[in-house]
Simulated assay, not measured.
Amino acid sequence: MLVTAQPVLRRFWYPTLPIADLDAGPQPFTLLGQDLVLWADKKGRPAAAVDRCSHRFARLSKGWVKDGAVNCPYHGWAFNSSGRCVEVPQAPGQRIPHGYKVTAFRCEKRYGYAWVCLDEPLDVIPELPEAADPRFRVMHLDSELFHCSSTVGVDNALDSSHHHYVHGTTLGDSSSPLPMAVQDLRETANGLFMSFPLRNNGSTLRDRDIDDRATSGPITLIRQLTWYVPFTVRIDIKFPSGIQAVTLLTYTPISDSTCQYVGVLARNDTERDFSAKAAIAEIATIVKEDKDVLECVDYDLPLHAAQQRHMASDKASLMMRRKLHDLLTAHGETEVTRTGPGGTP
């Protein structure tokens, strides 16, 4: 599926840049092939618009912010968060015509990021209750550009059988490629929920996140995963010590073949137990392991199951593809691939 060719995907929220990045002035970002400029308005709220001035199509992200409006670097025209031109320096005191504007998009601050929706939203920004829970501390993971599609990223997140090969020394079981049986797998109103155990045999995680009584041998982690259509995943991992690590991550679609990994981590321990720097580095190691493999996978993941071969542990992936296929159908769309509409070669 080519994500930029499916208009319905524009109707969901995606995290883009950390809010803190906007302190330095207007910033560029590409979402579903649409070049954006992001900046902070007068009240510090994030704003997003097409990254082209309506005068001579200069990139607004090369300009500056003054009084909450983004200014074009070419002639200084200023646009507010609704996209309306509020200043033409070459015509002071004159009425600015209604057509002097740029297309603005919905933009919200959540979990320290600017979330953008390019069209009328079909759903809300996924919830992370732990962000408001005093028992948890929240950390921003390192964003990472993946040279694969968002669909491939989600497919990997739902895959319970790659950990031996990809994460054998970090998250998985280095001694056996056999995945443990999925305990729960079901559709939800806006995605899927699955729960499965991971046998963690001799990995770096074992020394930090189990209690002192467990000194050797494998441990079993319970991994619960909630997928939100189309490209956001919540991962809950519970350790024998009682520690919980909750990650809300999105494979934000940049183009058909690239996405931005954006994640927030919440843990119910303290900085003294496990520093934020170390926790972020640990996740970064696992993300790099995924990235190295996913970037050698064809980005045009087909929604039609018959185009690939599958095994028993691929059930969640197949359910995800059916859910996306049904989304397209419900909005009068067919899957578009490199070979054209219809999703068949």
Rank of each mutant, 00 (worst) to 15 (best):
H98W: 02
P345Q: 11
F57V: 01
T339D: 06
H331M: 04
F79M: 05
T169K: 11
T247R: 10
G83Y: 02
A245S: 15
E87H: 11
Y100V: 12
E282H: 04
G83W: 05
V166L: 14
S143C: 09
V287R: 06
N190S: 11
T252A: 14
G263W: 04
A48N: 11
S61I: 06
T226D: 09
V102I: 15
L249D: 03
H147V: 04
M180A: 04
A104L: 03
G332P: 00
T270W: 10
I222D: 12
L158I: 08
G99S: 07
P28D: 09
E108R: 15
V293D: 00
V138L: 11
C117Q: 10
V336A: 05
L225T: 14
F231Y: 14
L205N: 07
D236I: 12
Y100T: 08
Q307I: 12
G263L: 02
L198W: 02
D123E: 15
R106L: 12
H75E: 11
Q94V: 01
T169V: 05
R11L: 00
D173L: 07
P121K: 08
L128H: 01
T188R: 12
Q183I: 04
R95L: 09
N200L: 03
V3G: 00
S81R: 14
D35S: 12
T103E: 13
A316E: 02
C85N: 13
M194L: 15
P18F: 05
R11K: 14
L327D: 07
D123M: 05
A312P: 01
Q27V: 05
D236C: 10
D155N: 10
F193T: 08
S174F: 07
T220H: 01
N71M: 08
W13V: 13
L249G: 01
Q94K: 15
A20Q: 13
I125R: 02
G68H: 07
H147W: 03
Q94W: 04
D273E: 10
S143V: 01
F29T: 06
E333R: 04
L22C: 06
Y261I: 00
D211H: 15
H147F: 09
D23F: 00
Y113T: 01
L221D: 03
Y228I: 06
G202R: 03
G191S: 09
H75L: 02
M311S: 05
Y74I: 04
H304C: 04
P253H: 06
K109E: 15
A78S: 15
Q27T: 01
G93V: 11
V262K: 03
W13Q: 05
N80P: 07
M320S: 03
K315H: 13
T215W: 10
S275Q: 09
A104V: 06
A47S: 15
G342A: 07
S241W: 08
P302E: 07
C259P: 00
S161T: 06
P89F: 05
D133Y: 04
T337L: 09
D326A: 13
A181N: 09
I280W: 03
T103N: 07
R135S: 11
S160W: 00
S174T: 12
E282A: 15
C259T: 12
H331K: 04
F57Y: 14
D207R: 14
P177G: 07
G191P: 11
V50C: 07
L205P: 07
N156S: 13
V182C: 13
G172V: 04
D300C: 08
C148T: 15
P121H: 08
